[in-house]
Amino acid sequence: MEIRTPSEIAMETVLSVQDYTILASQAVANVFRKPRYLADTLLQADSIGVGSLPVVVLAGMSIGAVLALQSSNTLQRFGSLSLTGQLVSLSMVRELGAVISGLMVAGRNASGIASELGTMKVTEQIDAMRALGTDPLKKLVTPRVIATTIMLFFLTVIADLVGLGGGWLVSRFALALDSNQYWTTAWQSLQFADVFMGLTKPLLFGFIIASVGCYYGLTAKGGTQGVGRATTQAMVSSSVMILMVDFFYTKLLMTLMHVH
């Protein structure tokens, strides 16, 4: 195995960040430039959005139910079991719905996008596309970015709703709480800032998932082994980026919107 110096590693990292930034900015710029690939975008929306629905529903419901179950013990100690709905609602809408959906879609689609584009890269299909006069960024990257960004928004809304549903199931049947009380506290506790925070995060996460997946796919080299490496890197990098961006974006919004 080739040994690299720290300066070489640093230079490679800076170059990778630069290349990713160029790809991501071109993907955004292409949204406003012709040709637009509506059919490809719809195809990707179906594959990414509809295809991810079962896993997002399952994860959302489990998280909502576990959240109600885990918090009930603490809330009971303070005689506040009636606030279970509020706790589940705020946690799901502000944070968990978006993050869980993002991580699930990253695991499924960042790797899927990277392996698909990576295979096209190592078999010269990307070069063939360029040789045929078609821009792979417009044809392959932008439709995936648009589709993932939009579909993750709706998946997050669904994850929030089924998470609240999961919390209700536990509250109603395990904790014997009144359904009306659960939904009332869940609904009334939500402020505009909470919903805004929870529904703008998936737009960022969706963009990260697709752009990172495309970046690793289009820079794959070294045959099937290279494609495998790109697939793993895409999933890991997009998951880490989601968690990092989540922290800083949450902090920014809490400061700007005075959320406590």
Binding site: M120, E124, Q125, A128, A131, G133, T134
Partner: peptide
């Protein structure tokens, strides 16, 4: 690159491993 895409439409390339879209 945008102008090159126009020029490439006047050319055809046959790749060594075909490079067909699978």
């Amino acid at each position: 690159e945008d102008l090159l895409f126009e020029l490439r439409r006047k050319m055809g390339m046959v790749f060594q491993e075909s490079a067909l879209f699978d």
